[in-house]
Write a protein that binds this DNA or RNA. Structure first.
Length: 266
DNA sequence: CGCATTTGACCCCC
DNA sequence: GGGGGTCAAATGCG
């Protein structure tokens, strides 16, 4: 057991915009842990954290990597653990816990963020849904993200997809066909050659924040609950989201990370 | 074959 | 002692 190699795992999960709820000025620059042991010892010490409720827990502007999942006593749904993809590269100690609150239409999630990002990675955007999916529908309660391939535990990994494939408790309230579908593969091919992070504007545009669904919004979606290989943003108004994308396009720049991930979807 | 996810085991705190 | 958080070998897909 002495030589347990710590695998170099790559960034994987894209969260774009939204959840934030990051207290302004709440940047606690936590120094990198000197060792795993230390990290564990310190784990339960009080650390900066804040909670956000959202219908789009996976898109909060940062790249996350899932590192664990646990069934919580008296909780209907398992708790998922993510940490910043730049944890090693940039010693960013940001992490988040994701707990599905219910299986309504759409399901609501409670996201607990711990530690502020110190990686300086800027908000990560969802793909350019407009170009990828054609003209947006005139009236829609939301849209669907498709991750382009059959996925699995192999290359096309993003936490989101795996959630669906392996955790049936996640409801997918609306049939995918009703919404524009965003293909992450095409996004990659078009703008992101390899795994990249969006670097820039220092803060989330407020409009971006408000455009994403949180508990304050009133999701109204229709129909059935099935669990496709799609992810739904039930309460995102298309125009809002589209405007959001445009806004970021104006100010964001793309920066390639050190890692190379062939066929990896953001 | 590479690499992110899965998941059981381990460990710490309350 | 139990619950919760993290680790890391195994898994499995492209």
């Amino acid at each position: 057991m002495a030589s347990r190699l710590k695998r170099k795992q790559g960034a994987v999960m894209v969260s774009a915009l939204g959840s934030h709820g990051l207290p302004e000025g709440m940047f606690s620059l936590s120094p990198p842990e000197s060792s795993t042991r230390d990290a564990r010892k310190k784990r339960k010490n009080k650390q900066s954290s804040w909670v956000n409720h959202t219908y789009t827990p996976y898109f909060d502007g940062h790249l996350w990597r899932k590192y664990g999942q646990k069934t919580i006593k008296d909780a209907a749904y398992p708790r998922l653990y993510f940490r910043c993809s730049y944890r090693e590269d940039r010693h960013c100690m940001a992490s988040k816990r994701l707990q599905q609150v219910n299986c309504q239409d759409p399901p609501l999630f409670e996201v607990t963020y711990m530690h502020e990002h110190t990686c300086n990675a800027e908000p990560v955007l969802p793909p350019d849904v407009g170009d990828a999916a054609g003209p947006p529908p005139e009236a829609s309660d939301g849209f669907v993200l498709s991750f382009g391939s059959s996925g699995g535990a192999g290359h096309h990994r993003n936490a989101l997809m795996h959630q669906k494939l392996q955790h049936p408790y996640q409801c997918q309230p609306v049939p995918a066909a009703q919404f524009p579908v965003t293909n992450f593969d095409s996004w990659n091919e078009g703008q992101l050659h390899e795994k990249q992070a969006f670097l820039p504007p220092n803060d989330f545009p407020e409009a971006a924040v408000s455009a994403f669904p949180t508990v304050e919004s009133s999701p109204e979606s229709s129909s059935s609950s099935n669990c496709d290989d799609y992810y739904l943003f039930p309460s995102v108004d298309w125009d809002s989201f589209r405007g959001l994308i445009d806004q970021f396009d104006d100010h964001s720049q793309y920066t390639t990370t050190q890692r190379t991930y062939s066929n990896t979807c953001l």
